[in-house]
């Protein structure tokens, strides 16, 4: 941790507590590796929470259920600890990459902040942790990009992605419900802004905020494949060659479930699904080892080669 402080960019840059979530350590390592590198190119150091647990997903919707918010709040306590330990300097925000983690912790935080009795009960359930003071803010990586400005994102581009036609796909968890939305829930633009800054041709499709089927993928993959077919099909019809997203569950449903889609629809044409940060890292010209396309189900390499966007 102390070594990280030595990086020159941190002198002027931003060090912010970062919550990865379990999927970014397993099936979506490509999301994390590309995001950490892309953030660094922008002068942002994502400082991983030293100890963290599941975000608590999915946000519990039952009015009488507090126990399922304990996981979220314990992570927020870790942010308090990081500030006290000097791992970050007066930074009460916690950034997430995964949309599901964002939504769960954002809403749990909102719930307990609005209800002193909830905070008290959850604090009582803790063990060795200090009490949660209610001051941490949960933000999504895209909000951070908006804050530093798309101009800065654009200036960090070494090789723009001109010609690549990408459809932003928002999914649900960064848009809904309103209190957890990072953008206009009905007409979001933030992913398109980032893609435009990277130089891609942004393809807006009406299916860019339609649910991918989420966790139904565990026991009803046909339903999910049906939604994936619609979402990808409309993107293709609108002229997109690829999709960009920020949710590892959307990515799985849109990318890996193309196997099931192709089984059902023989004429289906596979489409690469990127994490937005993979495209950022590519455009920023950082070491392409962080792209980790081996974890993408539909290989994006041929498409990127077609546009001469890969080193080798």
């Amino acid at each position: 941790m102390s070594d990280a402080k030595d990086f020159a960019f941190t002198l002027t840059g931003l060090r912010i507590p970062y919550f990865p979530g379990c999927t970014l350590k397993t099936t979506a390592q490509n999301f994390e590796s590309s995001a950490v590198a892309a953030a660094r190119a922008l002068g942002i150091e994502l400082v991983e929470l030293p100890r963290w647990n599941c975000c608590g997903t999915v946000f519990s919707l039952a009015a009488d259920d507090l126990i399922h918010h304990v996981a979220s709040i314990r992570n927020l306590i870790r942010v308090q600890e990081m500030n006290r330990q000097g791992l970050v300097d007066g930074e009460n925000r916690m950034v997430t990459l995964c949309s599901m983690c964002y939504n769960t912790m954002k809403r749990a935080n909102l719930r307990v902040r609005q209800n002193a009795e909830d905070i008290k009960k959850i604090n009582d359930l803790m063990y060795r942790e200090e009490d949660y003071q209610g001051n941490v803010r949960v933000i999504h990586f895209l909000e951070l990009l908006r804050e530093i400005g798309m101009g800065k994102v654009k200036r960090a581009v070494k090789k723009d992605l001109a010609g690549l036609k990408v459809a932003p796909y928002y999914g649900c968890m960064i848009l809904r419900p309103k209190e957890a939305s990072i953008d206009d829930p009905e007409a979001p633009t933030v992913l398109g802004e980032v893609l435009r800054a990277l130089g891609t041709d942004v393809v807006v499709t009406p299916y860019n905020k339609v649910c991918c089927g989420s966790y139904q993928t565990v026991h009803d993959k046909d339903a999910v494949a049906g939604l994936a077919y619609d979402i990808l099909g409309h993107a293709r019809k609108s002229g997109a060659e690829a999709i960009a997203t920020t949710c590892p569950l959307c990515a799985f449903n849109l990318d890996n479930r193309q196997k099931e889609v192709a089984e059902k629809h023989p004429d289906f044409e596979h489409m690469p699904v990127f994490y937005i940060t993979q495209l950022m890292a590519l455009a920023f010209g950082v070491d392409q080892g962080v792209l980790r396309f081996d974890q993408n189900y539909v290989d994006p390499v041929p498409l990127l080669k077609k546009h001469s966007l890969l080193d080798k």
Binding site: G21, C22, T57, Y215, H219, F252
Partner: peptide, 27 residues
């Protein structure tokens, strides 16, 4: 609603953690 032990092993090997955790929570 679902028996997680009945999910085919080959599915368990590839499903992302986030799918399993949320399905367990919901079902």
């Amino acid at each position: 609603r679902i028996d997680i032990r009945a999910i085919p092993k080959e599915e368990l090997e590839k499903l992302p953690q986030i799918a399993m955790v949320s399905a367990c929570r919901k079902f």
